[in-house]
Amino acid sequence: MTVAEDIDVAADSPAKATRGLTRKGALYGVLSALMVVFCVVPFILVIVISFGRKVEGAAWVWGFSFENYQRFFVGTLWPDEVTFLYLQQLGYSFYFAIIASVLAVLTALPFTLLLTRLKRSTQAIWLVFILSSLSMSEVFIVMGWDILLSNNSGLPKLFQVTGTTQWLKDVGWFQSLRDIGLANPRNVKFKPSEFATILTMSYLVWPYAVILLYPALSRLDPSLSEAARTMGASRWTVTRTVTLPSIRLPLMGTTLLLFVFLLGSYVTISVFATPDKQTTAVAIYSNIRGSNLNAPFGSAQAVILLISASICLYFGHLLNRKAEAR
């Protein structure tokens, strides 16, 4: 009987109807103002400040110059001297993000495919686990891998105790590990290294990959691949000729989204990447909140990151539209 409580008497007059209309208008007005102030103004501020100038020994002043952008692409002293330091940082942003996102999608794909074939209730349990891991702060994840990869405890220690290190030395692979920077003279050494960076970044977005692929894969029509099987196609042939082509677009869309997300990752890079391979996100941080205190230059880098991300998102959007049109 309690549910009936919310069906209630409501007085209803013509005056109320017209008031309803103006109320809707007012609602639109308030929401538009909110969105513009909070979702647009911050971006505009970043863009405007990126044209400002830093004043030595002070903060910065408004202005309109392209010197921050010039500095980003060719350095301050151009044309006398050219430096690609900041472009190189952007390059590393892309490098880490591309490898990590592709790796995450490639490993998440078979997992999600298997997941969608489980019972609905079992799927829900897995989704709880994956969502929990997805929401784990980058800080916690970095902490976990940092402990796992650290020299005193974690995997290197495990390698030594179990004799794996000795075995690697015996078969001669230890030298190869040293060549690529994953070992010191005594034992394997996983951080700082590209390996640790990419591993952690992939781990970071792996649950996202599952969640993003899940809708597309759970809508795959099983009768399609069953039809192919009745026509004599092997399991692998079915995957290659039926499953993969039908999820090609969501696959690419997911990779793009993860890539954009990873472009801005900060904690992982600052902990695991070697100092010569820092990225634009780290540079933005140090310019705005860190030691450099050069907000305009940091903003310019943020704008460039934003533009890179927007271009990728736009392509992702096109892919989605194409996927939906089919």
Binding site: M1, V3, A4, I7, D8, V9, A10
Partner: peptide, 23 residues
């Protein structure tokens, strides 16, 4: 989200009939 009885009484209750009578 309503019971069968509440579904049937819906128009009466929003029309202002006292709930016990409507039900």
């Amino acid at each position: 989200h309503y019971t069968v009885r509440e579904n049937v009484a819906y128009s009466l209750i929003i029309g202002g009939m006292p709930k016990p009578t409507a039900l």
